[in-house]
């Protein structure tokens, strides 16, 4: 992080709206990716980003280390998205069943439905894995930036993404093999 970024974060925390808008521009895509990763719904994700920004502005004084502002924003967005997911889908089980059904159904079906399979496999991943994947595929961020955004320790992301892709690969093995 260079010093200008640092200064901007600090100014934003101290209530400089212009600085905060710069921060919005730089992080909102990532936040969207995170929210989408959790919610799998664009409208909801956008709302979450919006709420996150407003809420973050109002409680920005809680950030003590201004360098961690992006990570903090991410965690706020994750909490909000998770809350929303919990609220809108109080029972995650039926979806899982549905997803399984789809997988089974489609594994027997055409290749064109591979997208759907991938999506449902995605939905069954743990949240953190899903968020990391989304960040990677939406914004094509390098591992270092993703780790920083999600507040992960150095090198943890490689394991997470590896596991995520591995899980999906195993789940989708038949389909992938045939496509190959």
């Amino acid at each position: 992080m260079d010093s200008s970024e640092h200064a901007i974060y600090r100014a934003a925390i101290q209530g400089d709206r212009d600085a905060f808008e710069i921060v919005i521009r730089s992080v909102s895509r990532n936040l969207f990716a995170i929210a989408y990763g959790i919610l799998q719904n664009r409208e909801e994700a956008e709302d979450v980003v919006q709420d996150t920004l407003v809420k973050a502005w109002k409680s920005r004084w809680r950030v003590r280390d201004s360098d961690k502002l992006p990570a903090w924003l991410s965690s706020v967005a994750r909490h909000r998205a998770r809350d929303l997911a919990r609220k809108r889908r109080p029972e995650p089980l039926p979806e899982a069943f549905e997803a399984d059904e789809v997988v089974e159904f489609e594994s027997a079906g055409q290749k064109a439905d591979l997208d759907g399979e991938v999506r449902s496999a995605l939905a069954q991943l743990p949240e953190l894995h899903r968020v990391a994947l989304t960040l990677r595929y939406f914004e094509e961020l390098d591992y270092g930036t993703i780790e920083k955004t999600l507040g992960l320790t150095n090198g943890a992301l490689r394991g997470i993404l590896g596991r995520a892709l591995g899980l999906m690969r195993k789940r989708l093995k038949p389909a992938l093999a045939s496509t190959g």
Partner: peptide, 24 residues
Amino acid sequence: QEGKNMNRILNEIMADKRADAGFE
């Protein structure tokens, strides 16, 4: 091989879901 396939599919799927240009 499987991984490469999946990577491609994921890229395709995600491409139309990501935030649009005017998002910021």
